[in-house]
C-alpha cells in the first residue's frame, strides 16, 4: 500500500513539474502577452493541481490535506481574478495583439 502511495505521489509530482516546465517554456516562447498568460494560467494550474494531488496521500492529517487543497483553490481564485485584468491591460496597450 505504501509503495502504491509512493508511486502515485512520484507520478503526480513529476507530471506536475512537467506542466510547470511547459508553462515556463510557453512564457519564454509565446509571442504575445495574452498567449503567455494562457501558459501561466492553464499549464501552471494543472502543474500545481497535480503536485497537490500527489502530496495528498502524504498529508499527516485531514488538516494538512485541507491546507493543500486551500492553497490550490486560492491560487485558482487569484489567477481567475488577475489573469483577465492583465489581459485587459495588455489589450489596451496593444490593440492589434
Amino acid at each position: 500500500m505504501s509503495l502504491l502511495a509512493d508511486a502515485f505521489t512520484v507520478i503526480c509530482v513529476v507530471a506536475g513539474v512537467g506542466f510547470f516546465a511547459a508553462g515556463t517554456a510557453g512564457l519564454l516562447r509565446f509571442p504575445d502577452t495574452g498567449s503567455r498568460l494562457h501558459a501561466l494560467t492553464k499549464a501552471d494550474h494543472l502543474g500545481l493541481g497535480l503536485i497537490v494531488l500527489g502530496l495528498l496521500p502524504r498529508a499527516e492529517a485531514l488538516g494538512g490535506a485541507f491546507r493543500l487543497l486551500a492553497i490550490w483553490a486560492l491560487v485558482l481564485l487569484a489567477s481567475a481574478a488577475t489573469g483577465p485584468l492583465l489581459a485587459r491591460v495588455a489589450q489596451r496597450r496593444d490593440p492589434s495583439a
Binding site: 511547459a22 510557453g26 516562447r29 509565446f30 509571442p31 498567449s35 492553464k42 499549464a43 494550474h45 494543472l46
Partner: peptide, 21 residues
C-alpha cells in the same frame, strides 16, 4: 483544466508548433 493544460503544454513544448493567437 486537464484539457487546457495539455493543449498549452503541447504548443509550448513542440518546437515545430507555434501558437496562432
Amino acid at each position: 483544466a486537464l484539457g487546457a493544460g495539455i493543449a498549452v503544454a503541447r504548443v509550448a513544448l513542440d518546437p515545430r508548433r507555434r501558437p496562432n493567437p
